[in-house]
Design a binder for these strands. Structure first.
Lengths: 145, 145
DNA sequence: TCAAGATTTAGAATAATTCTAAATGTAAGA
DNA sequence: TCTTACATTTAGAATTATTCTAAATCTTGA
């Protein structure tokens, strides 16, 4: 997680948005800041609640719109580990998610390149791998004892 | 996909349901038959429509109840490849899913054992791997040309 | 300055799923 | 066999997450 200067950050966001035909707006900046600030894979509703602290006027519809723009321009990813609300993640590296079924915590995990060795149906053109590991995190394993 | 005699099948279903405290009912049998008959990962609604042909009185709530019982007793799995309705799959082998983003078709794929080599957070106890490959199936790649 | 178009907003609409409560079915014991 | 307890089914209401709609506001470039 390299620190980037705020200036470069904003510039990068503007570029990415711009390249996909979107503008940088205060709301989009704010939503992106929320994602970067606490990388715990929040749902749209959690993003909404956090964004409201700095920007009380923001609406839920705008949060959805902003998250959608961020996903489309390649600054965030949607994460689906369970039924229930979609979660968002600003980590754009190829990675998977480890989900604790007891407490709901989500951890990013690297996915091994061997995965590319999957035998796919003939002619299938793979573009993205979604890997979710379900189980119990260390804390919850300990609790069960 | 080994053929099993209908008798053994029903027996197996009864046992599995029973072991989890469920009974075999005509509706659960029917829903399971639908899953086994056409293994195209139908949604609850698709299962409902198909089940109605043989059992016109069956209700949506019952289909959800039956699918839930089948999942709980280990006779079916939920599959989540995209937002939108949960899909169901009677293939209980450890396997992943390959999803064509253009036509929506879903293919079962074996997942390599190397996946077990994922570096998980310390102490994490993995119980299940969910692998979804997104891309384009051969037919849709051809169409794009 | 103005027009075109992008964005935000509140609230309505939709989709998928779960919940509720009443009716029905089933199994086990008196 | 009768009864009681409990499981199951059913229709419809409720809930949740998300998308849509239409009006208001903002931005940008001519």
């Amino acid at each position: 997680m390299k620190a980037r200067s705020p200036h470069t950050d904003e510039q990068h966001l503007t570029e990415q948005l711009g390249a996909t035909g979107f503008r940088l707006t205060p709301q989009r900046q704010q939503v992106y800041d929320v994602l970067r600030h606490k990388r715990d894979h929040p749902t749209a509703e959690e993003v909404f609640i956090r964004a409201k602290h700095a920007m009380p006027e923001i609406s839920m519809a705008t949060v959805y719109n902003c998250l959608d723009a961020l996903v489309k321009c390649g600054m965030a990813r949607q994460v689906t580990v369970d039924r229930g609300a979609t979660r968002y993640c600003p980590n754009m590296h190829e990675h998977g998610h480890c989900h604790c079924d007891a407490c709901g915590k989500i951890f990013d995990v690297d996915i091994p390149h061997e995965l590319a060795g999957l035998t796919l149906p003939a002619g299938f053109l793979a573009r993205h791998f979604d890997v979710a590991v379900h189980g119990l995190c260390a804390a919850c394993v300990a609790k069960k004892k």
